[in-house]
């Protein structure tokens, strides 16, 4: 079997790598956070605490997987599966390097957006089926937050799409080879995409759907064992996805000086953004819920529309 786009081997390798990276992020995040808080973090299990992931996995797999008797079983079991599936599906259109990827879809960007919008169901069904007030509140917040920020996320990418003239993520990277990284002409789009991406994957500081101090654990209050593990890994998968998308859309994907192979450039850039997200978690406090919504609709929406308009004007006037 050859290693090319769409071959079974490459699909398997990408799937395994992505899940492994997401699992390793549990350790990476705890270590990085602790360095920024002048602690050491988990460093006991294995060298540098690297095997902490294994320990966590063993713990999560052997925990009692409990479905509360008052929950709606069908939706309760379905919800964590949705988030994993949806995010892993999104990875299928991400071009990791020349010849590395699952498909080269010519609707790649739209596909990612579609999958992101389906991801909202996971959270909502989890909250709704748990039949628990904290879960319900978390799900309500998540629904409103995810629908809103999807809008800005979509609009912020459109500038890049217009510049590259394609929805195909691989062609967007190739277009950046000639025109330079899109972060320079589309800096505003980049910032908005970054913010919307964090809100989409409800990471801190926008983890309002699961704000521990206010509503327990939000939508996954009732989850335990492997089902909770799926939400947990799903969140990290979302983080990896957003970091990869930023890399592809704004930072030239695998492009870089030739002394390192393309896949290494891709990983380096993606990891830099993952680290940045963790830094955000360490540094920025959580906004209030209404602040988040009004910030989105009253600031991000006009700015992203303006950005799109100006991009369009520039493209039209130069062509």
């Amino acid at each position: 079997m050859t290693f090319e786009v769409g071959s079974g081997l490459s699909i398997g390798v990408i799937l395994a790598t992505v899940i492994l990276v997401a699992a390793m992020l549990i350790w990476v995040e705890r270590r990085l956070l602790s360095f920024w808080q002048e602690r050491l973090g988990p460093n006991r299990v294995g060298p540098f605490g690297l095997l902490q992931v294994v320990a966590d996995m063993i713990k999560i797999f052997t925990k009692e997987d409990w479905v509360p008797p008052f929950a709606d079983k069908f939706s309760f079991v379905l919800a964590p599966a949705i988030i994993m599936t949806v995010i892993l599906m999104s990875f299928s259109v991400v071009p990791f390097a020349p010849g590395v990827g699952v498909v080269d879809s010519n609707i790649g960007v739209l596909f990612v957006l579609a999958m992101a919008s389906l991801g909202a169901y996971s959270v909502m069904l989890a909250g709704l089926s748990s039949d628990n007030k904290y879960a319900l509140l978390g799900a309500l917040r998540a629904a409103a937050q995810m629908i809103s920020y999807e809008v800005f996320m979509g609009i912020s990418i459109l500038g890049v799409v217009a510049l590259a003239g394609t929805f195909n993520l691989r062609e967007i990277v190739l277009a950046q080879e000639e025109n330079g990284w899109y972060v320079i002409p589309q800096f505003i789009g980049f910032v908005i995409f970054l913010i919307a991406g964090i809100a989409e994957s409800h990471r801190l500081p926008f983890d309002i759907p699961e704000a521990e101090q206010e509503i327990c654990a939000g939508y996954h209050t009732e989850y335990s064992g492997m089902k909770f593990g799926m939400f947990f890994v799903g969140e990290y998968l979302g983080l990896v996805l957003i970091a990869s998308l930023i890399t592809v859309l704004f930072f030239g994907g695998w492009l870089g000086p030739a002394f390192l192979p393309p896949i290494v450039w891709f990983s380096l850039k993606a990891f830099a953004f993952i680290a940045f997200f963790i830094l955000l978690r360490a540094a920025i406090p959580r906004p209030r819920y209404d602040q988040l919504m009004s910030y989105g609709w009253l600031f991000l929406l006009p700015v992203s529309l303006l950005n799109l308009l100006i991009t369009g004007v520039i493209i039209l006037s130069t062509s």
Partner: peptide, 10 residues
């Protein structure tokens, strides 16, 4: 599927 149905569920 992504927006209108979410509102229904909401």
């Amino acid at each position: 599927a992504g927006a209108i149905m979410v509102l229904f569920l909401f």
